[in-house]
Nucleic acid binder design. Structure first.
Length: 415
RNA sequence: CGGGGUGUGGCGCAGUUGGCUAGCGCGCCGCGUUUGGGACGCGGAGGUCGAAGGUUCAAGUCCUUUCACCCCGACCA
């Protein structure tokens, strides 16, 4: 992609109507556009990041036999009445609207009830279990107050997976597999070392749920962690957890964190409430055991932007960066342009995702933008290095560039 | 939803106790000179000052209502 052709451009001043670092940076660099409070558009660069994150999640879900599907954003009232969750008193984040015939529909804030209705249709025998399905879907939640940029919006992209099992034991076994898969995901996203499985409140169905919390100053949660023992407890259940698990409080460090994933074991409750069952081996009718597993895709993107940024801008992990490398061509001498063009063509044909800053700008502006955008590698083509035939390469996370042959650069970038 | 703050070209801002054609920086368009960390000259375009109503000879500035955005709290499967 040539920067001169990119739909977006960077802006020199961050927007005044944002305080959250993630939103300031992402807007300034042209990754997202704020449509209204808590509602953001994902621009060409931003969409590439979203897709990178989705693909990592997708690979790990597929690896544990998750099957991708996509549910609907419009949801019928009667479905949610089966669990008494249509009522605004019970669920206060509903967006609701009406069809032309005046019947009410809800806009998806969760897909737990819809997945169970589908289970009713496709799960009738123990032979149909276990089953695990997931989707990437836009969730709409009428939050009283949106905040923290894309970390807590009214419209956001979420991966939600649901697993259904014939027994509690089978569910537990799968639940542990998902935990491991999640840890792999956060590792690949570059925040593995600061992400903890934590005990959190379990809501209506279970005493504790498990949250995946990433240490992050901008987060909304407070965590008590023991890094050596890899224990983390959400503040909201600290006292209970200490009692229940015999954790020593003075060995816990208090940190701020952001929830990047949440998994729930519903047990058989949902199935019983909705009166959905399957026929077991012995011919008896039994409820389906259900668990749900969520990852806020756009929230994770916000956490990455927020947590890994430095004073110059975003610093994307290599696995999620919209492009792997940016070429800065300095000056407009024909030889420089020629070498930069050739380098660009070579990288493109080697399947390296490359941004080419071919704009007629001064070096400082190109460097600043390369930093702001957070592209992992920067190549500089200028008359300075022209004669040697070598190219300058610098990582976003380092300050000193290296001068390498084109072949060596390709080796670094294609890897 | 309670409390606090802010709305002036695309972005960031200034605008005295109401007073004349509403300014500045960036960005944008044209021409030229520039090119290793956000250059410069010359010439341009772009704003019913969030909206509605009111006070006044006169409103960006005062009053009322309203909308939007941000922060704190509450809330958060």
């Amino acid at each position: 992609m040539k920067l001169s052709k990119l739909f977006t451009k960077t802006i020199k001043n961050p927007p005044a109507d944002e305080t959250a670092k993630n939103a300031k940076l992402l807007i300034q660099a042209g990754y997202i556009h704020k449509e209204m409070a808590g509602v953001y558009a994902y621009l060409p660069l931003g969409l590439r990041v979203v897709e990178k994150i989705k693909n990592i999640v997708r690979e790990e879900m597929n690896a544990i036999d998750g099957q991708e599907l996509i549910m609907t954003n419009l949801q019928p009232k009667d479905l949610w009445e089966t669990t008494s969750r249509w009522d605004d008193e019970v669920v206060d984040v509903w967006f609701k609207t009406k069809l032309k015939d005046d019947s009410e529909v809800g806009l998806a804030w969760s897909h737990e009830e819809p997945i169970m209705r589908m289970a009713e249709k496709y799960i009738s025998s123990y032979k149909d279990l276990p089953a695990s399905v997931y989707q990437f879907q836009t969730k709409l939640r009428n939050e009283l107050r949106a905040k923290s940029g894309i970390m807590r919006g009214r419209e956001f992209l979420m991966k939600d997976m649901y697993s259904m099992h014939a027994s509690a034991e089978d569910l537990d076994e799968y639940y542990e597999k998902v935990k491991v898969a999640y840890q792999k995901i956060y590792q690949r996203l570059g925040i593995g070392d600061d992400t903890y499985v934590t005990f959190a409140s379990g809501g209506a169905f279970t005493k504790f749920s498990h949250e995946f919390q990433t240490i992050c100053e901008a987060g909304e949660d407070v965590l008590y962690v023991n890094r050596e023992q890899n224990i983390a407890v959400n503040e909201e259940v600290l006292e209970e957890a200490i009692k229940e698990f015999g954790i020593k409080r003075d060995q816990l460090e208090k940190v701020k964190s952001a929830e990047v994933g949440n998994i729930f074991n519903f047990g058989a409750d949902k199935s019983e409430t909705m009166d959905i069952s399957f026929t077991d081996q012995d011919g008896s009718s039994k409820p389906i055991h259900l668990a749900s597993y969520g990852i806020g895709i756009t929230r994770v993107m916000g956490v990455l932007a927020e947590k890994l940024a430095d004073e110059k801008g975003i610093v994307w992990p290599e696995n999620v960066a919209p492009y792997r490398v940016v070429i800065c061509a300095l000056g407009d001498e024909p030889e420089v342009t020629k070498q930069a063009d050739e380098l660009y063509d070579k990288l493109v044909s080697s399947k390296v995702e490359v941004l080419y800053d071919d704009r007629d700008l001064r070096p400082g502006q190109k460097f600043s933008d390369a930093d702001l955008l957070g592209i992992p590698y920067r190549l500089v083509v200028s008359k300075k290095n022209l004669d040697s035939g070598k190219i300058e390469i610098k990582k976003r996370t380092e300050t000193e560039p290296k001068i390498l042959d084109i072949d060596d650069i390709l080796e670094v970038l294609v890897a």
